[in-house]
Structures are given as structure tokens and as C-alpha cells.
């Protein structure tokens, strides 16, 4: 089985001068391609830190992280940017759309940073429209984020995460700000993406959400405490 991401004894320390915060204290975990994982655990247990490392937003202090054949801990800042652009799709709890851009422009943002900076072709444009249609926003292309509901904004974010056809989608509490009906819509979208074969790693607090994934990882104090729903 091919691995989408492979972490070996990953540690992440924050040096705050007086103290060193050990946010991750030796995480070893494998994510096969096509996996659908929920990361759970108490607040402060290191979930977001792990997700950020997985997404190449930061480098581990110790340990080895192999993503698509590269050891991420050795990459330069520019190379990390390229990894984020080409291999990762991010979905955030607070949507994180660019407020002055329309729906279609927000979906296009990752295209601006493709390697070699090719111009956005009409084919690219059509792909963005297709993605917007897929997440149910075909009639909102020229709306701005403030004109959309939370669920709609999160769907824009999902379309944006898909635009560069990434291997892995990382979602940090994607339904944390949404009501249960909207949560259901978002989960259906993510399930659909997973069924297409995409690896999805998602941080969540909600048992109902976690139950719909293939695998649950429980974190505690910067370590993986167990797998499956509520071990022990």
C-alpha cells in the first residue's frame, strides 16, 4: 500500500525562552493513500500542530516526515511553499477566504502560485467554475465572502482546496463553526472527495463527525494515545 504521508518520531518544540513547550513529543503515524482520518483529542493536545506539520506550514524540530517521496524536514521555505501549493489542500475552521475577492477569484488563488507562474487559462477558469458547481455555488460566482453564509464560505474553501488537485486534504475543525445541517453538507462533500480517492486528514471534536471517517486517531499531550473511537 502506498503511503501519502509517513511520520517517524516527530517532535515539535516551541522555545519560549523561559520554557520549551513540547507540542509534539514523538509522533509516529502512517497515512495510506485514500485514507480518511479524524484526529481527536483535548484542546492543547497537539492536533493543530500535527496538522500544520503535515501541511508543510512548519518543519518538525526532530523526526522524519516523508510526503510524496520528499523528506519535508529538509526542505527550504520556497520548496515548502511549492509542496503546499501542489500537494496539499487546506480547509480551516474559519474558512479563511480573501474578503476582497469574489467566489471565483478565491477559488483561483492557488493557481496564482503554481510553479513557473503560468497564466490562468480559460481551461483553468472552467475548472474553477466546475468546482464551484460541484460544491453547489454555480450561481454565486461573483459574490463576495460577506454575502455568503458560513456553510457556503466553507464550500468555497473546499473548492479552493481542490483547485490544484492535491494528494492530501487537511481540515482543521472544518465544521466547528457550523450548525448540524450545514455540517452534514460539508461532510457529504468530504466523503465524496474521499470516495474519489483523495486522502483526507481532519481534526474534529465531534463524535458524530469522527464516526463517519475510516479511522480515528486520539491524541494526548503531544503523543498519539490510541486509535479508534474513544479508546478505553
Amino acid at each position: 500500500m502506498k503511503l501519502a504521508a509517513d511520520l517517524k518520531n516527530i517532535q515539535k518544540h516551541y522555545d519560549l525562552g523561559a520554557v520549551i513547550v513540547k507540542a509534539l513529543r514523538g509522533v509516529t503515524v502512517e497515512f495510506p493513500e485514500g485514507d480518511f482520518v479524524a484526529i481527536m483529542g483535548a484542546s492543547g493536545s497537539g492536533k493543530s500542530t500535527l496538522l500544520n506539520l503535515l501541511g508543510g506550514l512548519d518543519r518538525p524540530t526532530y523526526g522524519e516526515y516523508i510526503l510524496g517521496g520528499h523528506d519535508v524536514s529538509q526542505l527550504t521555505d520556497d520548496e515548502l511553499s511549492r509542496i503546499r501549493n501542489q500537494m496539499i489542500g487546506f480547509i480551516f475552521q474559519s474558512y479563511n477566504l480573501i474578503p476582497q475577492y469574489t467566489v471565483i477569484e478565491n477559488i483561483e488563488v492557488p493557481l496564482h502560485y503554481r510553479p513557473g507562474y503560468p497564466a490562468i487559462s480559460s481551461k483553468d477558469r472552467n475548472r474553477c467554475i466546475d468546482l464551484a458547481t460541484k460544491v453547489g455555488l454555480a450561481d454565486r460566482l461573483d459574490h463576495r465572502p460577506y454575502q455568503l453564509s458560513g456553510g457556503q464560505q466553507q464550500r468555497v474553501a473546499i473548492a479552493r482546496a481542490m483547485v490544484n488537485d492535491p494528494e492530501i486534504i487537511l481540515a482543521d475543525e472544518p465544521t466547528g463553526n457550523l450548525d448540524s445541517a450545514t455540517e452534514e453538507e460539508i461532510m457529504q462533500l468530504l466523503e465524496g472527495l474521499n470516495n474519489e480517492g483523495r486522502t483526507i486528514i481532519m481534526v474534529t471534536h465531534e463524535n458524530l463527525v469522527a464516526r463517519r471517517t475510516k479511522r480515528q486517531i486520539y491524541m494526548k499531550d503531544g503523543l498519539i494515545a490510541g486509535e479508534g473511537i474513544f479508546p478505553g
Binding site: L57, S81, Q86, P99, R160
Partner: peptide, 16 residues
């Protein structure tokens, strides 16, 4: 700042 963070997460290099 938030916008900058978003762009960086989506693949913008420092130079961009």
C-alpha cells in the same frame, strides 16, 4: 496579516 497567512498556506512564496 490573515490574508498573508492564507496566501502562504495556499503556496505563495515569500517573494510572491
Amino acid at each position: 496579516t490573515r490574508e498573508i497567512g492564507i496566501r502562504r498556506a495556499l503556496g505563495a512564496r515569500q517573494r510572491d
